[in-house]
Simulated scan of single mutants.
Amino acid sequence: MKGLLILIGILAWIGSTLFCAAAWITHVIVCIKTGSWILLLFGCVVVPVGVVHGVGVWLGVF
């Protein structure tokens, strides 16, 4: 049972890491395509801003 919980924790960590990485890459691509250089730099320095912007692009908010 303990091994199963560890496996679930590892899979959750890998999934959330991939999710955040994909959102950040989306942020970088969108900023380059639209020429939003200040947002690009800010999202690269403060990574959570890039992740939120990437998720917002996926959901059609930005």
Rank of each mutant, 00 (worst) to 15 (best):
K2P: 00
K2C: 00
G3T: 04
G3E: 12
G3R: 11
L5K: 08
L5C: 06
L5G: 11
I6P: 00
I6H: 02
I6Y: 10
I6E: 08
I8G: 10
L11K: 01
A12R: 00
W13K: 00
G15A: 15
G15Q: 01
G15N: 02
S16T: 13
S16Y: 07
T17M: 11
T17N: 05
T17E: 07
T17L: 14
T17D: 06
A21L: 15
A22I: 07
A23D: 06
A23G: 04
A23E: 04
A23K: 03
W24E: 02
I25R: 13
T26V: 11
T26Y: 03
V28N: 02
I29P: 00
C31W: 01
C31G: 06
C31M: 12
C31V: 01
I32R: 11
T34A: 12
T34W: 08
L41T: 11
F42I: 15
F42N: 06
G43K: 06
G43L: 05
G43T: 05
C44Y: 05
V45A: 15
V46F: 15
P48S: 07
P48Y: 04
G50I: 02
G50E: 03
G50H: 03
V51E: 05
V51Q: 10
V52R: 07
V52S: 04
V52E: 02
H53T: 05
H53F: 12
G54A: 09
G54T: 08
V55D: 02
V55L: 15
G56E: 04
W58G: 05
W58P: 02
L59W: 04
L59H: 06
L59N: 05
G60V: 02
V61K: 14
V61P: 00
F62Y: 14
